[in-house]
Amino acid sequence: MISYCIETENLSYKFSGNEPVLKNINLQVPQGSIYGFLGPNGAGKTTTLRLLLGLLKKQQGEIKIFNKEFDANRISILKNVGSLIESPSLYSHLTATENLEVLQKIYRCPETRIKEALEIVGLSQTGNKKAGQFSLGMKQRLSIAISILHNPSLLILDEPTNGLDPNGIIEIRELLKKLNSEYKTTIVISSHLLAEIEKLVTHIGVINKGNILFQGTLDELRWKQMHNSVIYFDTSDNEKAKEIISSNDIRILSSKEWITIPLVEKKAIAMLNQKLVEEGIEVYQISTSQKDLESIFMDFINT
């Protein structure tokens, strides 16, 4: 049985007088996973994450984190959660080390963790430079350092690569992978770009207009990708070719201009080609149309 680090049940939320921002969200984040929470801007990602952290007062539904009801166990849950919500939230007049010291004393974790966290995010050489003078990317890294300072079991990151250059994005990706594999940290990472987190996540949840449209493993999403892929045949005699293909238990999706069939294995394509040629049909073209994950994501969003 899958053990979930985060579970929500019919989580709904609306800001005063407005349309619901979240509608019956049933989030299931497996223990030890890297869960990509995807959706366009305004889909409800940040609201969901803020509810999970208790930054918004829950209106309807249930939230369980570490298998414990959130409201009744807020402090014991939050002490094992690291987070970065929206903008880097730093004391701008303090240095990177001083910013971490504030939280280190609050978390009462060893002082050595400050140096470790700064090294992990590549900010150990910033010296006396104040956080207010950092670039956006550096601020983002420092925020990540703060969120991992106490080695949390769960990391909730809201668009953590915002403002980072491509190298920075790769570094953060590698860092999160390392945290997940070495420390078994469950990571929830929100983004509006599938391509950005596709290489990182094990599970994906797609949200749009406050509804969860898909939730599952990356493999399940890839299966959907396969399911939505087709093969086209262009031949000298499409009517006869259609009969031959059908006689091999392959469903014809369409036969206007081209014969369209669902994606089949390579060997099956070769076998069909051979049979068509043997029956005297000239095969002009066989092409595959595979939807990439981004298109599938867009399909979800535009449904």
């Binding site: 002490k79 094992n80 001083e98 004393k105 609050i106 978390y107 009462r108 974790c109 949390p152």
Partner: peptide, 21 residues
């Protein structure tokens, strides 16, 4: 690593340090 629940005094001392700085 086990994180301790922040004590009020530790939190207040830390915040005072940051705010005064």
């Amino acid at each position: 690593m086990q994180t301790n629940i922040p004590s009020t005094s530790a939190a207040l001392t830390s915040l005072l340090g940051a705010d005064f700085t």
